[in-house]
Design a protein around this nucleic acid. Structure first.
Lengths: 199, 199
DNA sequence: TTTGTATCTGAACACGCGTTCATTTCAATC
DNA sequence: GATTGAAATGAACGCGTGTTCAGATACAAA
């Protein structure tokens, strides 16, 4: 069946990951059984082991894919403009990515503790790279006197936490359009970092 | 043994809740067994059922206690000053409470999905009361032209998310004192809401 | 000393877990 | 039509789960 890699269906594998993602997000890693995942895919539990060595690796693969996609998404959006423009791009990219990957986002914050130490360290390294990307923008802006921040590391955490919060309440078709939400959050961030020419 | 209520030890009950709190925070509700909790207390699993009807109720009691304490903490800190003072008090109270109840905070965000619908609704009602307290401050400030906010509901969520973020990285004895962190976050919040006389 | 009661044990119940593996299915290739 | 080999089954493994409960224990009151 497999045409290129020489092993495993190229259809069932992704379906398993999609089902696992949704179920882990909904009920939590520990509360979801391999039989439930298999049931969602329409297969027996044993078949899952043709695609993943174990449940732990399945979780890790989902988290790693999320972080890789996130970093990839930012590297494509990176405008290369001045710090203010870069910060706006970062905020919008972050909100957009998170809202279109809400299950992965949820898991990547909630299920870290279910990773064994090695896997945890790998995911943390990705996360650090992402945070560093934001901090670089804030540092550049602070040095150029465009922002007013006593501590860029702390501001980095504050901005990410604030933007992540959107996912806890935003629902498409609700009171505010996504673009409007992005604009309002960007204005709050812009003020929080003390961007000049804006009060 | 019980002297006042006529049932249950007044020592073992709290010890069970403390052990459950710590274990749930560390490993997650679904991943912790009643036997583990009992082991932590130095008792057999069956004994837990003298203090809680089941595992689900044990979780609910922890979450409810957290929300009650949180609301209580704010009602005691409420200064009754102008919106700017109230907002500062809210930010400081929130950070202080969360840092001194980090396990409860963690659980109360992570384990909501493990509550059955009735219990979930009750906790959400507490949470709404708390959010409303913050939104009332933001509304009052906006109407008094002290803040500049296009949407107080959205600002409420943004502020809470930002403040909650402190718990993900702050460690006592680290680079910054808690008071310094409170001050920096308060300044970011103050600017994010567009407080006058401050850029 | 006897009684009463709050506390706890330890075994048991039915069930679901992650994982393994010999066996079956079945489309593609020769 | 026979052969191949990946894909999937379904039963089995040992173990841990939440919960129950009859019985043991400890201790205050009578």
């Amino acid at each position: 069946m497999a045409r290129k890699t020489g092993s495993h269906s190229e259809i069932t594998g992704p379906r398993i990951r999609a089902a696992a993602l949704q179920l882990f997000a909904r009920h939590g890693f520990a509360a979801v059984s391999m039989r439930q995942i298999a049931g969602e895919v329409g297969v027996q539990a044993g078949a899952l082991y043709l695609y993943t060595p174990d449940k732990q690796t399945l979780l890790f693969d989902l988290l790693e894919a999320h972080m890789v996609e996130l970093l990839d998404s930012w590297s494509k959006s990176e405008a290369g403009g001045d710090p203010v423009q870069n910060l706006e791009a970062f905020c919008r990219c972050h909100i957009q990515f998170n809202l279109s990957h809400s299950d992965s986002l949820f898991i990547s914050y909630m299920e870290l503790r279910n990773l064994d130490p090695d896997n945890f360290a790998k995911i943390e390294a990705y996360r650090k790279r992402y945070e560093d990307a934001l901090e670089a923008i804030l540092k550049a802006g602070t040095e150029a006197k465009l922002f007013s921040l006593p501590d860029t590391k702390l501001a980095t955490m504050a901005v990410i936490a604030m933007l992540n919060g959107v996912n806890t309440w935003f629902r498409e078709g609700g009171r505010l359009s996504q673009d409007r939400v992005e604009r309002i959050y960007w204005n709050m961030v812009r003020r929080a970092v003390g961007a000049k020419g804006f009060s």
